[in-house]
Design a protein around this nucleic acid. Structure first.
Length: 286
DNA sequence: AACTAAATCAACCGCTCCCTG
DNA sequence: TCAGGGAGCGGTTGATTTAGT
């Protein structure tokens, strides 16, 4: 069904007579719903998937009686209705991971999303476009420029690391177990291993970090799947990044002397963290 | 309170890849 | 080997919300 509309517009093969195609397309365009999903549609999709599972989206859409394309159903499920979708602002750990993984993989949103449990590629993409690109624009430089990447590597990311460490330290003082979670370890280990593996993350190509990346992901996976025997998150993190943070990444790193960017990143870090303060830190304070 | 601009994010579109017959 | 269809990805759009005046 959907294919008639989509393939005809994307120029792929469609071997029916033009008149018949137009008629079918006209019928479908009046039949298919577009735009925001209603509560009823959501419920229909959720109920159908809970009974029959996901996949085969075009067939699913028809069988469930939804007047939507399979694509639309898939997107709605993956980005919104899936039970494990995490909503709300990105944590410092998540921001750190996004910055790091994007520096290695570029706009591979789905690949990046695989390392942020509960986050969708769409959400990450939106975050990058609205938050990160906006600030690059304010600086009159491109997000892919060396200047912007330097600012991320030497100023912004270390500040996020500081915040993660700070929240971890707060946990050590008996303020609950929110801070040093698996994701914080994953974020910091990923960045640590990446930077250890290449002298300059900024200038290295994506390919020369793959070996260290695989080691990093191996550690991450082994930790996250260690089950009952896994060490505490903090111990594990220390093992992974022992001495690294004190030698390689430092706030106001000597390697980076661009005072204008320094000031800008300070403001940026504060602006992107406002929402975090309003959620996590308020909880901790309570 | 009303209006405007900016920010956000859900949804769509076009394309490519991969599997199957 | 190749065409067709399904699935997924990245880019873009536009409606809605929020912030500023």
């Amino acid at each position: 069904m959907e294919m008639v509309l989509q393939r005809s517009s994307s120029g792929m093969a469609c071997h029916r007579p033009a008149g018949q195609q137009e008629q079918e397309a006209a019928e479908l365009s009046t039949e298919l719903r577009r735009g925001p999903w209603t509560v009823d549609e959501d419920l229909t999709l959720i109920n159908y998937i809970s009974d029959h599972g996901e996949g085969r989206w075009n067939a699913l859409a028809r069988a469930a009686g939804l007047k939507r394309t399979g694509k639309s159903c898939r997107l709605r499920w993956l980005n919104y209705l899936r039970p494990d979708v995490k909503r709300g602002n990105f944590t410092a750990e998540e921001q750190l991971l996004i910055l790091d993984l994007h520096s290695r993989w570029g706009n591979r949103w789905s690949k990046i999303a695989q390392h942020l449990p509960g986050r969708t590629d769409n959400e990450i993409k939106n975050y990058w476009r609205t938050r990160v690109q906006k600030h690059a624009k304010q600086l009159n430089c491109d997000v892919n420029s060396k200047r912007f990447k330097d600012a991320m590597k030497y100023l912004w990311m270390p500040r996020l690391v500081e915040r993660i460490h700070a929240s971890t330290a707060a946990d050590e003082d008996g303020c609950g177990d929110y801070g040093c979670n698996d994701l914080s370890c994953v974020a910091m280990a990923t960045v640590a291993t990446c930077l250890e593996g290449s002298p300059s993350m900024v200038t290295s190509s994506s390919s020369d970090s793959f070996s260290s990346e695989s080691q990093s992901l191996e550690k991450i996976n082994s930790h996250m799947h260690a089950g009952d025997e896994k060490m505490s998150s903090r111990d594990w993190m220390q093992e992974v990044d022992h001495e690294f943070w004190s030698t390689q990444i430092q706030p106001e790193n000597e390697q980076f002397q661009d005072q204008e960017l320094n000031g800008w990143v300070q403001g940026f870090s504060e602006s992107v963290s406002e929402s975090l303060w309003s959620l996590e830190d308020i909880w901790k304070m309570q």
